[in-house]
C-alpha cells in the first residue's frame, strides 16, 4: 500500500468557464502531460489547452495515396496482365469488354476511388485509435468515485505524474490556486 506511486492529481470543476480559465493557466505553467475531462464537447478548449494540431490528416492522406496506388495496381494486374507460367489463383484475367482496351482508366477509376476511400477511412480510424492509445481497457482514474461524475455533471483537469513539472506538493498548491471544488490524488494500481 505504501509503496504505491501517485498516478495523477485531479481537480474538479462545475462550470465550463471555470475549467477553460483553469486550463489556460495549466497551459501557461508549462505542463505537457495533462488532460481535461468533460461530459460534453467544449468549443475552444484546444486553444485553451494549447494543443498542437493533430497529425491525423497526414495519416489519412498517406493511407489514401497507398489506397489509390493499390487500386491502380489491382485493376491493372487483374484486367490487363497475363504472366506465363503463373499459378491461376494469382493470375490476371484479360477480358475483352465491348472492344475497349483491357487497361481502360475510365473503367478503373471507380475501383481506384473506392480503394482510396476505404484505405483512407480505415487509416483514419486506426490512426485515431493509435494516437489516443485506444482501446484502453483500464484507467487508474476510474478508481476515483469523484471522477466518475466526469460523465455526468463535473469537469476535471488531470495532471499526470509523468509530467516533468509534476511534484506532489507544488502541483497540489498550484491546483489549489485555480480554486477547484476539490483536489484528489489518484494512485497507481
Amino acid at each position: 500500500m505504501t509503496d504505491k506511486q501517485p498516478y495523477a492529481l485531479i481537480a474538479e470543476f462545475d462550470s465550463v468557464s471555470a475549467v477553460m480559465h483553469a486550463a489556460e493557466q495549466v497551459r501557461d505553467e508549462g505542463y505537457m502531460i495533462w488532460d481535461v475531462h468533460s461530459p460534453m464537447p467544449i468549443h475552444g478548449i484546444n486553444q485553451a489547452m494549447g494543443l498542437r494540431p493533430t497529425i491525423l490528416p497526414w495519416i489519412t492522406l498517406a493511407h489514401g495515396v497507398v489506397g489509390a496506388v493499390f487500386g491502380l495496381g489491382l485493376t491493372w494486374w487483374m484486367n490487363a496482365t497475363t504472366v506465363p507460367g503463373l499459378s491461376p489463383s494469382v493470375q490476371g484475367y484479360e477480358f475483352l469488354i465491348s472492344g475497349k482496351p483491357t487497361f481502360s482508366l475510365p473503367a478503373n477509376i471507380p475501383i481506384i476511388f473506392e480503394t482510396t476511400i476505404l484505405f483512407a477511412a480505415i487509416g483514419t480510424l486506426l490512426g485515431m485509435l493509435g494516437l489516443n492509445k485506444l482501446p484502453m481497457l483500464h484507467n487508474p482514474l476510474a478508481k476515483s468515485e469523484r471522477f466518475l461524475r466526469a460523465t455526468a455533471d463535473r469537469l476535471f483537469i488531470v495532471i499526470s505524474a509523468k509530467d516533468e513539472h509534476f511534484d506532489s506538493e507544488t502541483t497540489h498548491q498550484f491546483l489549489q490556486r485555480l480554486s477547484p471544488l476539490s483536489i484528489e490524488v489518484v494512485m497507481e494500481d
Binding site: 465491348s98 475497349k100 475510365p106 473503367a107 477509376i109 471507380p110
Partner: peptide, 12 residues
C-alpha cells in the same frame, strides 16, 4: 463530370 463521361464512354 466523371460520372457523366464514364457512363457515355461505357455505353459507347
Amino acid at each position: 463530370a466523371f460520372s457523366q463521361y464514364m457512363l457515355l464512354w461505357y455505353a459507347n
